[in-house]
Amino acid sequence: MAENPNNKRRDFLQLSTISIGAIGTAAFVWPFLSSMNPAEDTLALGTTEVDISSIAEGQSITVKWRGKPVFIRKRTKEEIEEAKEVDFTDLIDPEQDIDRVKKEEWLVLIGVCTHLGCVPLGQKLTDNKGEYNGWYCPCHGSHYDTSGRIRKGPAPNNLPVPPYSFLNETTIKIG
């Protein structure tokens, strides 16, 4: 059978028809799947400028950036010490405090728990700050330290630091 040149011709036609059909289907499906990704207006990176002059030492504020809460905290001397003293190599997600801040007293974090996306407590003075004096996620019990690093609980990563810059002494631009 295989010697019959007609069979080779058949195989070739069959394979090329199937391939072209598959490529065509994929090309047809792609725009539909792609339409479900964030649209251009959603992607357009919003930037937020925040006046931080009114934040006292030990206080935090929450601002909204790209739909997410961003924590801005003016840390106390003790909190900075606490964050620096830890042997970072032993942490769940090892990172030095110095790599997470631009100015020691200002800690800027995306306030979304890296476990399942809840907003951790610890912004208000009356909040439960967890065992490491930073933030505590009430949903599934993740504890973050004074550098926003995960120390205990199911979350796999530290609270991320968003892109930001100091425009001057009292203004931060996030994004």
Binding site: T42, G67, V112
Partner: peptide, 10 residues
């Protein structure tokens, strides 16, 4: 992100 169509539920 693909499921949400955004970076957060929106």
């Amino acid at each position: 992100t693909w499921l949400l169509g955004d970076y957060t539920v929106g």
